[in-house]
Design a protein around this nucleic acid. Sequence first.
RNA 1: GCCCGGGUGGCGAAAUUGGUAGACGCAAGGGACUCAAAAUCCCUCGACUGCAAGGUCAUGUCGGUUCGAUUCCGACCCCGGGCACCA
Length: 873
Amino acid sequence: MTPFIPKDIEAAAQAAWTAVDAYRAVERPDRKKFYCVSMLPYPSGRLHMGHVRNYTINDVMYRHLRMKGMNCLFPMGWDAFGLPAENAAIKAGVAPAKWTQENIASMKAQCIPMGWAIDWSREFAACDPDFYRWNQWFFLKMLEKGIAYRRTQVVNWDPVDQTVLANEQVIDGRGWRTGAPVEKREIPGYYLKITDYAEELLESLEHLSGWPERVRTMQANWIGKSVGVRFAFPHDIRDTAGTLIGDGRMYVFTTRADTIMGVTFCAVAAEHPLAALAAQSNPTIAAFIDECGHGSVIEADMATMEKKGTATGLFVDHPITGEKIEVWVGNYVLMAYGDGAVMGVPGHDERDFEFAKKYGLPIKQVIAVPNEEFSADAYQPWYADKERGRCVFSVKYDDLNHAEAVDAVAADLAAKGLGEKKITFRLRDWGISRQRYWGTPIPIIHCGVCGAVPVPERDLPVVLPEDCIPDGSGNPLNNRRDFLDVACPTCGKPAQRETDTMDTFVDSSWYYMRYTSPGAGAMVDARNDYWMPMDQYIGGIEHAILHLLYARFWTKVMRDMGLVKIDEPFTRLFTQGMLLNHIYYRRNARGGKDYFAPDSVTTTMDAQGHITGGRLADGTTVEYGGVGKMGKTEQNGVEPQDLIDKYGADTARLYVMFAGSPDDSAIWSDTGVEGAHRFLKRLWAFGHAHADAIRSTTGHFDYRDADESVKAARRDLHVTLKQANYDYERIQYNTVVSAGMKMLNTLETVPADRRGSAALQRDGMGILLRALYPVVPHTTWALWQDLQLAVEYGDLLDAAWPEVDLAALAQDEIELMLQVNGKLRGKLNVAASADKAAIESAARESAEVAKYANGAPVKKVIIVPGRLVNVVV
RNA sequence: GCCCGGGUGGCGAAAUUGGUAGACGCAAGGGACUCAAAAUCCCUCGACUGCAAGGUCAUGUCGGUUCGAUUCCGACCCCGGGCACCA
């Protein structure tokens, strides 16, 4: 018998595929296309199991749908820009470009043995000038249209390294490298007006029926639409030059205009013009504003911060009553939301309540709920109840409910010309400037005379010098005279290039369109219209908001510029779950934990089979830390290469698909991997044990003449195939694998000497190998060759998907569950053609009914066709 | 705090959406083959109870709807994730 040697089988299969360039996709307008993409990986240099799961899901989909006749494309690229390359450079003194290229080469080398159906001819990296030049080109287009603009932003600033820090790099308010207290600093940068698309981004979420509900909800919350009223508190506050601040109006936004009669103060953000004015004449206020400028800009920290404020001594007029209202500066007011000012209604807003309590400001009740007693001592959740609350102590608004009062107040404010209903979004414009080296250069030249001048299109791309080695202190581009010094495109005088680079989310916003148009002399060409919108996007849930929102925005901007004809980029989205593994550790002398790889640990279990701990090879014990995401720190990752070396790629693929539903997290199990491998060996052995019979059996066999055992097995096979088809459709590949296992179990039960056995083995393997080929393409491909099935069905790559034979499903007699009063009491065999009356009388006459009814009269008989019969007595 | 997901054997999980709960696999136990081991093959395998046929209880907890509930409804308890002063 041909031995099962995965290494040889896989090499042979891959060689055959390479020889015919099997995965090169060609635009074929006459055929239905299927464009599937896995989120592009960051080239860390090591392929990990998460990638294996992601790309295998993609590959299974590709192979399945290709067999169903679709023109499929599965491309691949590299998210090559970004911080890790710079950090590696700082650590090892290697240029990010070199480090990145080497990592791409080694990761690609690890991808190849997995046998994924990738069209490598379309591969590119985000750091290729031929790709990022279109980032620059599109940026200039957006600048022209006013979608990109320059303004000053507040960032985390490390005063020692003179650089901006990402939020993750700020640890307890200090820079991760220098330990210096991080400052908030306002520096200029470029922004994209994603807020212009807020309404459409929110609205079209509802039509993305191929997206998980969870992701749609997360995006909707992130966009954060609020319907309310924007109105002004009039005032006569002037600066020292006598100019009226804000034309005598301090605007606020509220969703609770019904509580306007409860305003007892107003609060503005530290960056608000009224705060700045008050600070000029009052050192205490200036000091407070300065204090607000320090500390973290991380939102989670800000949320738990104590509310603080200071009175400004400035007063505005209540727009309804005309009452004088004092303006405070509050650290809980966000300049970036609304107008950076709020009306303070301590009676019915928890934050305002806390603030008023602290500073002794009056608390007024203006909303009442039946059977609830208002007290200014402690805030109660019902104070903000929109459903049950009605206005009280609000003069003309008394007794109105929330909606009525908001309408009435809005109408009154509008009549006075002070305000109107307004929709406000939580979404902010997208700041894309990074004070970083390893990214797409922003194509701007700063001229002392002409200001910020866009680089003319003919001068694109602005190429990033690739030999810089960042040392952690600032952006090395600032020291590159050959990059920096340039003539102003407008006036020709000496000028300097912008050294900020673009956020890497820019790359990922449209890379999947560049795959469709390799080599195009434009951002995308007509080929993009063929492939897009993408039929299936696959990736981790961690990208549910940022990347997927940016990509949707980017697509809509491209549409508005006439570059694409689609509204949304991704028709269906699939978020795969994480791979988890057991964690073993030991406390070290410093009180920390030393971790040990699970495969170096022999586990110990209690009587119930629960893991209690483990033992290393040297006999010392380690503690069990539960399961967690595979990763470097916990030492619980599994190397794909080790698996391939030991079992082959198909075992890795099979196990990863079988371990759990693809959208759920799955826990690693070494014995599970062995089980997967065992199955492949069995499949191989079965095929070769019957190879002669299968090869010599050709032509159509009429199963009506077959032995009963053959008929029954054939029926099982088709029932299982039907189930597998359904599971392929809903991306539940773990049960697809189960179905394959079941099919083999079924085939193994048929004795070889019955009438039709050989035909069933031939047809059965024809079904089984095709049904399982998307998951384990190498093994099934080799068996397909050995059993000479290609003669009848053609090459596996494009063999037709097996069809469920409805005739095979039919049976003469069916088994119904027999229930008495809803409890299972037995089984009832009836002819498949039996009508309800026949089934009912058979049930009434059954021994089970006689026994359990105990003589009681039958009240009702419920018959579920093909399933059960329930006799109620 | 708010918004989403989830809780099913010793373990990973199924159950085509109200109709045989635990498919498929792992682990475990028993057996066959073997001088022995590995590999392979066969049997058992939710709990309790019974000599047995069988019976009772079981899908986080407590109620409800229904002839029938893992599935639908209500309340609660855990676990995971997201957002987080958004006025």
